[in-house]
Structures are given as C-alpha cells and as structure tokens.
C-alpha cells in the first residue's frame, strides 16, 4: 500500500508538472503535421475515424425514436439547438445491430449523427501512418485506408462514404419492404 501510495503521489506530481509545462511551453509549430483520429468500436469491430470528418463527439444523449423505413435510423437527437437524425453505424456498416449505442459523432459533411458502441480514445498519428488499403474487405468501401500506429492496425472509416450510403441503404430497405409486402399479399 505504501508503494502504491508513493506511486500515485509521484504520478500526480508528474501530471501537475506536465500541466504546468503545457502552459509554460511555447506554441508548437508542428501541430498540423499529424492527423487526429478517434479510435472507436462499432459492434465488435474496431475502427478509427478522422476528427476532421466529425463536427462533434457526444455521449449518452437522449435519442427520440421516430417512425421510419430505414433500419439504421435510431431516432433524432438535439445537439446545440439543432435536431439531427441518429443512425446506427454498425447497421450502416452491415454489422449486427447492437442495443443502444452510447456514443455519437456528428458528421462534418452533413447534419447526421452516427451512433457507435464505444469510444476508446484519441490518437494523433503521422500522415504516413495512414495508407490505402489494397482491397476492401468490409462494407461498400467505407474503409479504403487503414491506420498503422504503435503496433496497432485499424481500418479508417470514411464517414463521407458512410453518409453517402444512407441513400443506397434507404433504397435497399424500401425494396426489401416492398418484396415482403408483395410476398405477404401472395
């Protein structure tokens, strides 16, 4: 216990020194050299998304369900005075639907929120750590690149493509429902 307490005190002192040093240090010039990434988990699959692709990260926001034909649409939620639709990222990626994903990101390209299961952290990687993928194994080409950093290899989700697939997904759902109705009439 004494060693643990000493370790905690040392870590607290280290944090304090780092915080102070952050204010004491001059502004870094190479801040734009890297890319900011968020490591997330959609369903059971790990991904990274670019911070530049999102307009905000939120957690435990109330999602109000609305009637819709889109299976990926979880409902609507309010963000900073704006009502945006919330879609399930695992459903959009073709993964099994999970129950009540906590985390939300709002796509920067359009006012659509994507819900996923877990936010694991923030990474700043060098630009050359992100390399294009030779052949896309998942979804409809939502992860054309993958990140390789500190021994971690993860596909990089291209949120624009995901958002763009919403129309395709709605069409497929409509066709599917129409087929089901037709079969039921027969």
């Amino acid at each position: 216990m004494t060693d643990a307490r000493a370790g905690l005190a040392k870590q607290a002192a280290k944090l304090r020194a780092a915080f102070d040093a952050a204010y004491a240090a001059p502004p870094r010039r190479d801040a734009a050299a890297g890319q900011d990434l968020l490591t997330i988990r959609a369903g059971s699959e790990p991904y990274v998304i670019r911070v530049s692709d999102i307009a905000g990260l939120f957690v435990d926001r109330k999602i109000t369900p609305v009637p819709a034909n889109d299976a990926s649409l979880l409902g609507i939620a309010g963000f900073r005075g704006t009502i945006v639709p919330v879609h399930s990222l695992p459903v959009l990626l073709g993964l099994p639907a999970t129950h009540a994903p906590r985390w939300l990101v709002i796509a920067a390209a359009t006012s659509v929120a994507l819900a996923f299961d877990a936010f694991e952290g923030h990474l700043r990687v060098r630009s050359d750590s992100i390399v294009p993928q030779q052949s896309s194994a998942r979804g409809c080409g939502f992860a054309p690149e993958f990140m390789h950093h500190a021994g971690i290899v993860r596909p990089v989700l291209h949120l624009v493509s995901v958002i763009a697939s919403l129309g395709c997904h709605r069409a497929q759902t409509a066709i599917h429902e129409r087929n089901e109705k037709h079969e039921s009439f027969q």
Partner: peptide
C-alpha cells in the same frame, strides 16, 4: 467529459 470537450474543442478550433 473533459476528453470529449477537448476533442470537440479541437474540432471547433480546427
């Protein structure tokens, strides 16, 4: 929450 705020702040700063 601080992390989220920092990330959102980073987004806003960008």
């Amino acid at each position: 929450q601080t992390n989220i705020l920092a990330i959102n702040a980073t987004i806003e700063a960008a």
